[in-house]
Nucleic acid binder design. Sequence first.
RNA 1: GCUGCUGUAGCUCAGUGGUAGAGCACUUCCUUGGUAAGGAAGAGGUCAUGGGUUCAAGUCCCAUCAGCAGCUCCA
Length: 729
Amino acid sequence: MLQVQLPDGKILECADNASAMDVAMQIGPRLAKATVAARIGDRTVDATRPLTTFTDQRPVPLRLLTDRDPESLDVLRHSCAHVMARAVMRLFPDVSLAFGPTIAGGYYYDFDLKHKLSEDDFAAIEAEMAKIVGQEEPFEQFSLGRPEATQLCSDLKQSLKVEHIQTGLAEHEQLGFYRQGEFVDLCRGPHIPHAGYIKAFKLMSVAGAYWKGDAAGRQLQRVYGTAWFSPKDQQAYLDQIEEARRRDHRVLGKKLGLFHITPDVGQGLCLWLPKGARIRVLLEEFLRNELLQRGYQPVYSPHLGRVELYETSGHFPYYRDSQFPPLFTAQAGGLVDAWIEMLKKDEPLAEDAEARLFQAAQVLGVEIEGFDLSLAKDEKLKLLNQWQRQHERYLVKPMNCPHHAQIFKAQPRSYKQLPLRLFEFGTVYRYEQTGELNGMLRVRGLTQDDAHIFCTDDQVEEEFRNTIELTKFVLKSVGLSDYRVQLSLRDPNSNKYVGSEENWSRAEAALRKVLEESGLEFHAREGEAAFYGPKADFMVRDCIGRQWQLGTVQLDYNLPERFQLEYVGADNKMHRPVMIHRAPFGSMERFCGMLIEHFAGAFPLWLAPEQIRILPLSEKSNDYALQLEKELTDAGFRVTTDLRGAKVQAKIRDAQVELIPYMAVVGPKEAETHSAALRDRLQGDLGAMPVSEMIAKLTEEVRERSIRHVVKSELPTAEETSKEVANEY
RNA sequence: GCUGCUGUAGCUCAGUGGUAGAGCACUUCCUUGGUAAGGAAGAGGUCAUGGGUUCAAGUCCCAUCAGCAGCUCCA
């Protein structure tokens, strides 16, 4: 007999070869019907295979998973991925399968296929899937040794699977497969008992993807789908996607006149229209006041800096490809620069090509003493670099920190001045890849609410704690309360990082300690750190459950080293300060873009670009309306008056559509009593009230920075999209 | 950067080789109103750009630019 222990501690006696399904049946047929999979320890397993195949532990620690457990959805979706692959294979027999894991909200499967899939194919695939689901065939697991597994995949003409067994799975002695009817797939599982458990599914989109995520590798076609235990759940999911689409900041930004991006200015370069700029100014003023109170000092730095500055900081060599190319004052600068880059590459430059470069350089007035084409590569590089250093080269700044480091260096520093907190809304430019650009969320010119804190080793913890507090305060003020922190640490197996082992360990330990003490939800991730230090990023969830990376705090032991920053300590010796980079908003562009989506364009009163619109009943009341506009403007509000010769209903509708928080309807009655009929965008008519009362009410709402009208997502939010390929080997 | 899709009026879009269209917005006129669209008239286009095929191209082909989705990247 096999002993099984359920979550409530109860022990059941079962047959030696019992499966989770058998256990469920033993408890009750209704439970058995609802059972989808099972959990043994922290592993999700098939409900239909003997428990003894999964564990040697006795009694077996078993938790049955029904369609109500979140883990079950992953199982269902992965099975649905198999169903989809099977359908695709029936329609396109020459298809070669890659991977088909679950992801947040659904699943995908990558195909290598001659036929170019498009959404037009979805109906046929879905129809085939419906047939498969209707047949309710079971998923049957079996294992093979390496040679047999390789042979099987090869017989099935699945070359990608063969490749994967030989490379990615080189360590595995036994390889698992699942069979469903004629469809066999190399797969770790687990799966639902049979396809009939899929009560709702839908193909969502098709896109390109790379084999094993390698941009240099083969391009595959990826079909995304979703699957649910009930059509109702699926509809709720589709509704949420629709809601996200409605909130798209690019659409709202256009509709509400907040910002504009045009190829006439350049890709990824954002124009802030008056109303969008208004929101930004308000946020900047809010933060500036807060920083001044917290002992920060404002600084300004130029948009350009010498290339050498960024060579010193390390940014230029490391990020060269994602920066705008250097600017040269000498005419031939670009040519020499390109020449150097070509020489640096391993493949040798054709001799006549280099001769022509040399000639062109000479035409452009480059004179390099002692240069000869017959010189060794290193010699040539030395002379060309020497020429470059004798001529000015500038970079549009990709980072503010080197400038701020220079401000620190501008005078001798004493420990008494530390911590020195320098802040600037600094605009930086980065040459992001075309495919990455996305409205205001990913741009090529962005303004960071940047600051650098220079402090002693002893102050690091306290300063880091303060920045965490600041970020918490800022997020709270704009009504963002659902967030957690991602602590990004170095990848111990990589050598892309600069700085000593010891500094890294110290920095990582300090961050972890403060985060632990802060009570914030945080999780650590290795390999996500910046090249110069570990960081803590604020991952903020908006009102419909999407996650955004906004504020960031980064520790840096490296830059002070590179810039040779020093201060005089109490011991009259020179010491190296530590630098903390921090930006509670992150970038103004990204933050505002996120806020637009979070509020669906309906900003709270304190941030609304237009707070009140005065609607005169007819032209007869225009004079009073304008008088009221002046009064409200003097009281500090952002007000306009709708003087069009339209009916008040039409004016109301337009103001509603433009998401103006308050309307003030005025007619002869109001003019007589110096009042206004206030209309709340959300609650409707609030009735007439004296102007003084209205000012008091709205002033209070601004002062409190009240947030109303934010919807809360009904759906459980998908856990952050994991990079791991679940369900796959 | 890669793969795929898209580009027609300020906006949203229709137009499948034969005279450039609609709704909204805009302008003017009428209407002077009490909480989500009053009426009429008018103006607005090098059909993204450049080539090509054709008697004829918004429509077919090629290139470029830009946008969208996904991948890859993100100091």
